[in-house]
C-alpha cells in the first residue's frame, strides 16, 4: 500500500485560501493536507475545513532582515517533511522558501487557479531577482524622468473636490 502523501500549503494574504485548499483536496483526495498559517490566524475557521492539519508559524510576519526568525521557519518546514510544498504565489521569496523546505516536489498556484509544478533553485531565483531589479529600476528611472520633467500644466486649478 502506498504511503499517504504529505502536502504543505503555505498561506499568503491576497488569495482565497479556502478555495485553494478545496481545489487541492479535489486533486489529491488521499493526501494529508497541512495548512501552514501565520501565528494568530483563527485556526478554527471553516475555510480550513479541507485541511487535515493546521500548523501555525512561530511569527505572524517575517521580514527578510529577521534571519533568526527565517531560520526558525525553515527548520519548522523541514521538520514537517513534506512530499509536496505548495505556495500561493510564484514570488522569488516564496520560491527560495520552497527550495529551503526540502520538499520532494514544489508547486505554486497560478493566477488562473492551476497548480503548477516548479523546480526552485536558490541560485536561479537570486539571478531572477537581480535581473528583475535591474529591469525594474530602469523602468522606474524612465517614468521618473517623464513625471518630473514633463508637466500636464493644469495644476493651477484649485484642488478638490
Amino acid at each position: 500500500m502506498s504511503e499517504q502523501r504529505h502536502i504543505g500549503v503555505f498561506h499568503s494574504k491576497g488569495r482565497n485560501f479556502a478555495e485553494v485548499l478545496r481545489r487541492l483536496r479535489e486533486q489529491e483526495p488521499e493526501a494529508r493536507i497541512c495548512a501552514i498559517v501565520p501565528y494568530g490566524y483563527p485556526v478554527g475557521r471553516e475555510e480550513l475545513a479541507h485541511a487535515d492539519e493546521v500548523v501555525e508559524t512561530e511569527k505572524a510576519q517575517y521580514s527578510i532582515r529577521d534571519v533568526a526568525g527565517l531560520c526558525g521557519l525553515v527548520t519548522q518546514l523541514r521538520g514537517a517533511r513534506f512530499d509536496r510544498f505548495v505556495i500561493l504565489f510564484d514570488s522569488p521569496r516564496l520560491r527560495i522558501l520552497s527550495a529551503l523546505s526540502r520538499a520532494r516536489q514544489c508547486a505554486h498556484i497560478a493566477l488562473d487557479g492551476r497548480l503548477v509544478s516548479i523546480r526552485p533553485s536558490i541560485a536561479g531565483t537570486i539571478a531572477d531577482i537581480v535581473l528583475r531589479h535591474i529591469r525594474g529600476r530602469m523602468l522606474y528611472a524612465w517614468i521618473w524622468i517623464i513625471v518630473h520633467t514633463r508637466r500636464v500644466g493644469r495644476s493651477r486649478l484649485k484642488p478638490g473636490p
Binding site: S91, R132, H133, R137, V152, S155
Partner: peptide, 26 residues
C-alpha cells in the same frame, strides 16, 4: 487632490506609491 484637476500633483504621488513594485518589476 483629484487627478483630473491637479494632475501634476497626483502624478508624482502615484509614482512614489508605485515605486516599490516598479523597482522590482512586480
Amino acid at each position: 487632490m483629484n487627478y483630473l484637476r491637479t494632475p501634476d500633483v497626483c502624478r508624482p504621488c502615484a509614482l512614489t506609491a508605485l515605486a516599490p513594485a516598479l523597482k522590482c518589476h512586480r
